[in-house]
Design a protein around this nucleic acid. Structure first.
Lengths: 234, 234
DNA sequence: AATATAAAACTGGTTAACCAATTTGCATAT
DNA sequence: ATATGCAAATTGGTTAACCAGTTTTATATT
């Protein structure tokens, strides 16, 4: 377990080393947007690592839109100047894995927006989906069962109804992390769970009635406990 | 070119097919959190695809926190119940690649928050970094040169100073996409670029003075044109 | 019958050979 | 000199064999 973690960190630091070496190479060779990088084989030889290590580094930079690989042709500097490229790589190298507080903070921000957008853009199909997740949650809570999953799905249904696929994606990436952490920290008490039924209903109604202000306010009320929690943890 | 696009779509739809088959398998076998999936080799044989295709599908589900691969041991259902798992996979399968409007909308949301947080949390080091990106931008604009990159780096410096690594990551993923699109749609006129110098300065001062309201307002003013643009495109 | 032990089978990850498409270099023809 | 055709070299991507742990199974021992 300890060893696994070590090698994982090692892999990441090796990858970061390769990324910064690629950056240096781009700078030394004065490569501009559209220019071709040396082949993966040459880079792996130059940096004295395996080709797959180079490959992963390139894919990470590709994910952030800085490089672009074209099959049977080569890897190219994206349509971004060297100044932005250097700055962004610097940031990427220093990226931390998000802590719980960051995640909760981001979730609240996103949801206060998605709920507003959902109230403005929701289709009839969205409403049906929202209703079914709403009912599923209520049923579980009234049965005295754990309803964390149904709670999650209601919030994701809102994100979907916001018709903003970027926010929807972000919600999908951070929410699972949050709920598993939640259970660990057991944030919610029994009373809070019961009251969440009404809070969900209020949010649903606001979306149904296409009332953006109400939707946001009701979501804010729903997050009240979460707010406190988020800003109290160190 | 046309063919490349086709195969890319094909690959994605094959991956989605595999993902839904994995979901079906989890349901049929009643797998619960912590349970082990069949091995990659068995899955590839069962689904009649190569092992790497199965691998990519698993990695995507791992990215969204639904599965967890452990070396030399197996792939496991994450600590998320089957209900949430089914709902989330449904969402993941239907995820669109974000359109430009979604990206701009998300950027505005994020930046109105990061600038506020930055004003509250910025360190002296953050301030130095902000100042240097501010100056670089001003210098370029006054020289009559294109300053899109410096503009980007100023905004990323704010995201960094917000000390929220989740938002910082999101900003890093969407901003390059936005600026390349911007140049395509040529959003900014000459006058707007000149006035952006003062707008940046105002934002910087608000962050320096640790005035969150001012920071947000100045950022909002800076986004005024962007707002209009975002809500006018179809 | 229960336990200890070792060997065999199985696991996700890695590597090196392979593939098909592209690019390059050169000979040839115009 | 320029254009054309073609083969050789080069490219990122894919595949199948391999690796180092883990897990299971069978055997031996008490």
């Amino acid at each position: 377990m300890k060893i696994e973690l070590l090698t994982k960190n090692d892999n990441l630091s090796i990858q970061n080393t390769i990324i910064s070496q690629i950056r240096d190479l781009i700078n030394i060779k004065n490569l501009e947007p559209g220019d071709k990088l040396p082949s993966e084989r040459m880079l792996s030889e130059k940096f004295e690592v395996t080709r797959s290590t180079v490959r992963e580094a390139i894919q990470k930079l590709e994910f952030f839109g800085l490089l672009k690989s074209i099959p049977q042709s080569g890897t190219f500097v994206a349509n971004i100047g060297v100044i932005a490229l250097n700055g962004m790589i610097e940031d990427i190298l220093r990226l931390d894995t998000p802590d719980f507080k960051s995640l909760v903070e981001t979730r609240i921000l996103l949801e206060l927006k998605t709920v507003r957008l959902a109230s403005l853009r929701r289709t009839e199909e969205d409403l049906k989906h929202l209703k079914s997740t709403l009912d599923a949650h209520e049923k579980k809570v009234l049965n005295g069962e754990d309803a964390v999953q149904e709670d999650l799905l209601f919030h994701l249904a809102i994100a979907k109804a916001s018709r903003n696929s970027s926010m929807n994606t972000f919600m999908l990436t951070i929410t699972p992390e949050i709920i598993t952490n939640f259970e660990k920290h057991h944030v919610c008490s029994k009373n809070q769970v019961m009251s969440s039924i009404k809070e969900h209903k209020d949010i649903y109604d606001a979306i149904k009635n296409q009332n953006p202000k109400e939707a946001k306010d009701k979501m804010k009320a729903h997050f009240k406990i979460l707010y406190q929690y988020c800003y109290n943890i160190k």
